[in-house]
Design a protein around this nucleic acid. Structure first.
Lengths: 192, 192
DNA sequence: CCTCTCATGTAAGACGTTACATGATTCA
DNA sequence: TGAATCATGTAACGTCTTACATGAGAGG
């Protein structure tokens, strides 16, 4: 997996603790990824065992808030990171979306309900859009790679919103036009 | 998970066997999803045990090729499917991409190598684009939902290609311009 | 006072991938 | 003759999610 390497990548910028790693991946990279502690902490432990990072208990932080464990990348970690960075990605993009999985089958359900669900998605992406635009503004003078990633996040969001609005209209149209829904049979006959 | 429900959805169109279900999900829905037999067959078994589908050994197929097991949706399966279809999606879109995960860290590696890896992605999406456009053409008179999904697949592909080409140029620019790479420090100071 | 954010972790279970086994047919 | 496609399945392994436990500080 690449989480391991992403952690090593973040530690190139500076030493970090687990909580910070999660926040950075989720908020700095275009708001495109999610990760949970169940992945972060075991991975940090493993990286430490493999000698790719070292851990420093953050003693002078102990007074206020919970104890922090800062991680630093080692020479070996650096080497492993660079090897990964320059290798070709093992896999293609993976996309999973419970909404889109439903969407394909909306022809079998109630149109009004479909529109409600689409509207829900529109609101979701509008909220996300706000975050992503703010994030992009904040990154204006940063590392071009991080900035480009943030731009991709915004562009994808825009595309999705336009597509959702268009889909909403087409569903509305098909509610009034009785001939539009008869195409199900064609697919049936077409084979796979 | 939604694979279970996607299978029920496909069985709304017509009876299918496992192999066919895989092909349909991969090729009919915008070439956006992948699935493997390790998911399909256990899921079919489970659906059968739950009484949501029934299995008919395809006897009159036995002469040529391996034995087929056709699955039909039951009344109960139909009911469960419709409940799922009209419920709100449990989760947001999940995107994972080993390429994008590398991309954010290209500032730490060799620029020439980065461009090679970007070029590789461009070729990959160009090939995918061809498939997706053909798929869309084939679906011209089909179910609007399936068609809209295919359109989304093409649009996303286009967006990704444009973004990759632009990124390629920007990496090239940053190779010549020494001031462009100094922004790493800013992020460091910015906190998380 | 209550909620949010900060901070670390584990255990169980769900989900997904890879690799293997098997074998016929079709097409170049 | 060899590769691709059709067809079904399992076992082992890896990854991811969810739920839990714990506790302090900040701000409204």
């Amino acid at each position: 997996m690449s989480l391991k390497y992403s952690i090593l990548g973040l530690l190139q910028y500076r030493d970090m603790h687990g909580y910070q790693i999660k926040k950075t991946i989720e908020n700095q990279f275009g708001h495109m990824w999610t990760i949970n502690y169940g992945q972060i902490y075991p991975n940090l432990k493993k990286l430490k065992d493999e000698g790719l990072v070292t851990m420093i208990e953050d003693a002078n932080h102990g007074e206020k808030g919970p104890s922090r464990k800062m991680y630093s990348i080692t020479g070996k970690g650096n080497q492993v990171f660079l090897e990964w960075l320059e290798s070709l990605p093992e896999k293609n993009m993976i996309l999973r979306d419970p909404f889109l999985m439903r969407f394909v089958f909306f022809g079998f359900g109630d149109k009004k309900r479909s529109i409600e669900i689409v509207d829900d998605q529109i609101n979701l992406y509008k909220a996300q859009m706000k975050k992503r635009r703010e994030n992009l503004e904040r990154l204006q003078h940063h590392d071009i790679y991080v900035r480009l990633m943030a731009e991709l996040g915004v562009s994808m969001n825009e595309l999705l919103l336009e597509w959702l609005e268009r889909s909403r209209k087409e569903i509305g149209k098909s509610m009034k036009d009785p001939t539009a829904s008869s195409s199900r049979r064609l697919w049936r006959e077409n084979g796979v």
